[in-house]
Write a protein that binds this DNA or RNA. Structure first.
Lengths: 340, 340
DNA sequence: AACTCTAATGGTATCGATAACATAAAGATT
DNA sequence: AATCTTTATGTTATCGATACCATTAGAGTT
């Protein structure tokens, strides 16, 4: 007895829509992409047919014939898990969605070779644009990006070596400004950041701290600079380590990840008075920073806006603007609260 | 004088690789997809040529001819911004990446019609699978999903109306278990959750709480049930509201979002002793929950594992397993700490 | 009336990879 | 040696939408 194989219902094609509307496929194509080019009557018939057949266009075919209009963009962020990038991501997806562009996402895990293979993987789908949070790339990655022929936006830092478009704040300036703020109020200001060798941003922030010290004519004491991985525990641990130093540290600038939160919680546990015993300041205005009894002074970075404007630049390029577009500096603010 | 138009460097095609390796395009195609089918010599020549030309395959073309092998999957989560889904997302991307499958991402904003349009938008790219965090879908969304002809994994709840594959824990069981835990230790246990009408999960959790009360023979007091949006402030506000009730509430179960954290911070601010004055428990083991001086008792949901196993099921389907696959219950644990 | 011009629509070739089929060469079997 | 297998490779048609060019109908111009 022959077994009945249920063939997968084939997708409705543009041809089918055309037949249903008694038009040619070409006219349907036009009606969908540039409605102003067809008569009202035709447009209506097409829309009707699309609806009745639940037609879902095939962008593989469209993108194949018309490269650069795949309506698919790609973003690479250091970590999918890290909520820091979530706001930027939302800015990107929301802005692109308006134009019907969807987003592929990947996490590079802060590794250059992972970013490289991710870029290669993404390019196989012929995205119409790429958004990269990192500004440091392997040589082969740069080669791939240059050859891709689509707009690239970097959002991690105001890099001096942009590939194409840049939307960011200056990690150097932000860290320097906060360090200056602390140096005006406290004598011995320590710095806790992420590992400079692992990230351009961490390096820039530390550079900013050092520059502020230099400008203020204060000595750089390497014992007051800690590099650590992210995480609450590391924030807490860096804090206790710095508190043992003599002469006593007055203030600590936690320049990355959730380190400040971990430190503040440690102060709670130990009963240390912030800011009297120790002042602390953070980088990035986590929503929770303002919830502590001693609310946390920190830098506000417009993360959502970075995503939105990055996507907008991308759209500008897709609209045909081939000219040079200077880097966009979205700036930052110090949010002065009670902890420093 | 004719202006020189710099044509965008066309991409290297499989044809070019074939010519470079002195082979046919078909053999190159085979060498890349099923290396065991070509001779070692050929494989080597192809790899060499691919490298030398920096060939990036065009999956638009591949996916067009061989539907279902677009090597692109899609995930829809309620909110791109919410870190709750980040772990699941990471589980998905990491598992899919091993097989060279990339992920499109979108946030439905908890709205059925947004999910629907997102599904339609994603389907235009002919993904080889879909991962949905919601289990409630509009009728048209269901129609689209059924017609898509690709595996679908739902991860939000152990729904009774699965479309295809399901990987989750039971929101009902988890909430009921925690409520039972609290009812064994406290007399008047209140419930704070997200708005039931807006989310199936919120509804199930509240149902679990009510079921626990019923099983324990305790009355349901609607004054002890609060529905609220997420966020620290709402957690804090719900707490203070419940603390005004007479006779006094002993314990509060915060069943969603970061509500517990907000409540715990409010207790810190007001100097309320947890758990003596008020016991509190949460849903989801946020990393910060264990960092408080009074660490927070909560439910641990294996979020990363949900993503990983969801992706694994998807891969199983792509490997040709057409059989019925029963829902996977990843379970949950109560993490007993000091707050309740 | 003959002409041009514009707006609306249709026909055909094509994008790049792959399924299906065809072929060729080497080894195994009688 | 003739035939059958097996393995490796090549040829052709095709996936679905769109660029490009051709065509038609009607309005506007002289």
């Amino acid at each position: 007895m022959p077994q009945t194989i249920r063939a997968r219902a084939p997708h409705v094609r543009m041809k089918d829509v055309a037949a249903h509307a008694k038009l040619s496929a070409m006219t349907v194509s036009r009606a969908l992409r540039s409605p102003e080019q067809v008569s009202e009557e035709t447009l209506h018939r097409v829309q009707q047919a699309v609806k009745e057949l639940a037609y879902v266009p095939n962008r593989l075919a469209g993108g194949l014939k018309a490269p650069g209009r795949s309506q698919l963009a790609a973003a690479i962020i250091p970590s999918v898990r890290d909520s820091l990038f979530a706001a930027t991501l939302q800015g990107i997806t929301e802005t692109l969605r308006v134009k019907g562009i969807n987003l592929m996402l990947g996490g590079s895990g802060y590794a250059l070779e992972d970013e490289e293979s991710l870029i290669a993987a993404f390019l196989t789908h012929r995205p119409c644009g790429l958004l990269l949070h990192n500004t440091k790339h392997s040589p082969f990655a740069r080669q791939l990006l240059r050859g891709a022929g689509v707009p690239i936006v970097e959002t991690g830092d105001l890099t001096r070596r942009p590939i194409d478009l840049v939307v960011s704040y200056s990690n150097f300036d932000a860290a320097k400004t906060m360090a200056q703020y602390l140096l005006q109020r406290y004598d011995r200001v320590a710095f806790v950041g992420q590992i400079a060798a692992q990230s351009e941003r961490a390096k820039e922030r530390q550079r900013g701290y050092r520059a502020a010290l230099k400008d203020a004519g204060r000595p750089v004491d390497n014992a007051l600079i800690i590099e650590t991985q992210g995480g609450y525990e590391n924030g807490a641990q860096s804090l206790t380590q710095l508190m043992q130093i003599k002469p006593k540290v007055d203030a600590i600038f936690f320049a990355g990840d959730v380190l400040v939160i971990g430190a503040m919680l440690e102060c709670n546990r130990r009963g240390w008075d912030v800011p009297r015993q120790i002042a602390i300041a953070g980088f990035d205005d986590w929503e929770i920073a303002r919830q502590f009894e001693t609310s946390i002074t920190t830098l506000q970075i417009p993360r959502y806006e970075i995503g939105r404007r990055a996507a907008e630049l991308l759209l500008r390029r897709l609209d045909g603007d081939q000219g040079a577009i200077p880097p966009i500096d979205v700036g930052f603010h110090i949010i002065e609260r009670r902890s420093a």
